[in-house]
């Protein structure tokens, strides 16, 4: 491991105002420490935010149907919260189905949404080509590499690395807002605008400045008891999604009054299937309608020989998730 400085500021304001170039925040460290060992991330300074202001950013607060969650809340705590499980099960599901118990205990939800891709060519510095790790160096995956796990939506000719997370699919579906403390003070950002498509610069993954600190997520309307997260993977637990769907429905009799769809395992960023939602809204909750929406959601897919199956699997996962959501009590 390369030598680095270690800071443990007392407050969020200290953390942000004393931030220096080359520094990196960390709380659970479950992605970053791995990547430091692999020499993929080489921060000169680590800023440990795990204990900021004695748990001030570790909270779950409801106000009517609005939900606000502190960025330092451990995954396990949010996943296990009774009210969250009852009112918006999709959020809890997405956390339970992620990682392992040990990782869920360590990882905080602020860092969770910023986890890096599992693309093997990004994670192993002995590969010369990786536009995400070394801008302009090429893409080993697109140049004859192993691509079974790679994305089919939101890709570019520079990068097809999959966004690996689960929780973010629920956040993007719920129109969450990210609360940020930056050098110029607090501000907020739509979660949907946090991550950026790889396009020509896959090394740029978010719209955050290096010193920006995520302090909370807020969801204005988190009252979706009829919601779930369905994750399809190669084994029953502790595996990344091949395809996943965060789905939520609000019914008005037999008519879909509101629907939310976040897709995981198939895209380069947390993925909201807005056009599919629009096709469903105001219509009946039938399998035929769900299948039509799934075709719309994957209409823009771009595939390789190895990951082409994700289009079919992604559609089937979305249909199944919607069918199961429709059967829930709402």
């Amino acid at each position: 491991m390369r030598p680095f400085h270690y800071d443990k500021p007392a407050t969020a304001t200290d953390a942000v105002t004393n931030f220096r170039p080359g520094a990196q925040y960390f709380a659970g460290g479950t992605t970053m420490v791995d990547l430091m060992k692999l020499d993929v991330m080489k921060p000169a300074r680590l800023i440990d935010i795990s204990g900021l202001e004695k748990g001030r950013y570790d909270f779950i607060k409801w106000s009517g149907k609005s939900l606000r969650i502190g960025a330092l809340t451990p995954m396990t705590k949010l996943a296990d919260d009774d009210k969250v499980r009852a009112r918006v099960p999709m959020l809890s599901d997405a956390l339970w189905l992620a990682a392992s118990p040990q990782i869920r205990n360590m990882a905080r939800i602020g860092g969770n949404v910023l986890q890096r891709t599992r693309c093997p060519y990004f994670r192993d510095t002995s590969y010369e080509q990786c536009n995400k790790r070394k801008p302009g160096s090429g893409c080993a995956a697109l140049d004859g590499g192993v691509t079974r796990h790679h994305a089919v939506l939101g890709t570019s000719d520079k990068c097809i690395a999959t966004y690996p997370g689960d929780f973010a699919q629920a956040l993007v579906a719920l129109d969450a807002v990210v609360e940020i403390l930056g050098e110029d003070g607090p501000r907020s950002l739509r979660f949907a605008d946090l991550h950026v498509l790889p396009e020509a610069r896959p090394d740029r993954e978010t719209t955050l400045a290096p010193s920006d600190l995520i302090i909370a997520f807020s969801i204005e309307d988190a009252d979706f008891p009829r919601s779930k997260y369905l994750k399809i993977r190669d084994r029953e637990s502790y595996a990344y999604a091949l395809a996943s769907t965060a789905s939520a429905l609000r019914m008005d009799g037999n008519t879909i009054a509101d629907v939310r769809l976040g897709l995981g395992g198939v895209a380069t960023t947390p993925w909201r299937a807005r056009e599919a939602e629009a096709a469903l809204r105001g219509g009946p909750a039938t399998e035929a309608q769900f299948a039509r929406a799934a075709d719309i959601a994957f209409a823009g897919a771009s595939t390789t020989d190895e990951n082409a199956f994700k289009v079919e699997l992604g559609k089937r996962t979305m249909v199944r998730s919607l069918l199961e959501t429709a059967r829930m009590e709402g």
Partner: peptide
């Protein structure tokens, strides 16, 4: 990796 003759899932997460 068929082009590079290298194992890509060389960890016990994958």
């Amino acid at each position: 990796d068929h082009k590079r003759a290298r194992y890509t899932n060389d960890n016990i997460a994958e």
